[in-house]
Design a protein around this nucleic acid. Sequence first.
DNA 1: CACCGGATTGGCT
DNA 2: GCCAATCCGGTGT
Length: 207
Amino acid sequence: MKDNGMGRVLSADFFMQDDVLAISQALLGKHLYSKVGGVTTSGIIVETEAYRAPEDKASHAYGNRRTKRTATMFLPGGICYVYLCYGIHHLFNVVTGAAEKAHAILIRALEPCVGIEVMQSRRQQHRKPDELTSGPGKLSQALDITMQQNGQLLDGSQHIWIEDHGQVIDPEHIIRSPRVGVDYAEECAAWNWRFRIKDNSWTSKPD
DNA sequence: CACCGGATTGGCT
DNA sequence: GCCAATCCGGTGT
């Protein structure tokens, strides 16, 4: 366990847990950091979604489908899974569980914390504070997360890591709802695998 | 090798 | 509220 003086970097033990739904909720209130090009930025995780192969039809790895893209998800928990969505947006996921279990958590929204001015400049014309990190594509742009980070370790030795700063989210303050944009996933689309901090203004739209 | 469509966003009607 | 942007993964021929 590494400590930079601010918080504890989450260790492999945390990400290797088997219950991706529990980890998705435990990540709320944790701090996601990026250090790319020597610049540090961070935000508090306020919204997550779980994706769990093989049974989850919304997962890229549904049915344990192994391709060049999904290979990352079959690696041991504690690494980044990044992919390009709609040819434009990089979406950032945390891989969890043991090797060969393709579990992943999409980070959907952050409350900006460190390096807000840098994030604003990366967001260019969309620098309104409430548009900085209130969506999975937005937060990747703000933290400069690209395909370069796909497969990287989250242990603090690379560009992306997650810290525990002691903030605890009361389970009663977590909203559970269906995931966004997975209408194609048939019965899985109704599963309440989206988790948000109640009354937090930084979560993504739609509600 | 052609086709379909997406874990989104922002601009325009 | 509608829809284009823009690339490539996945599937089937």
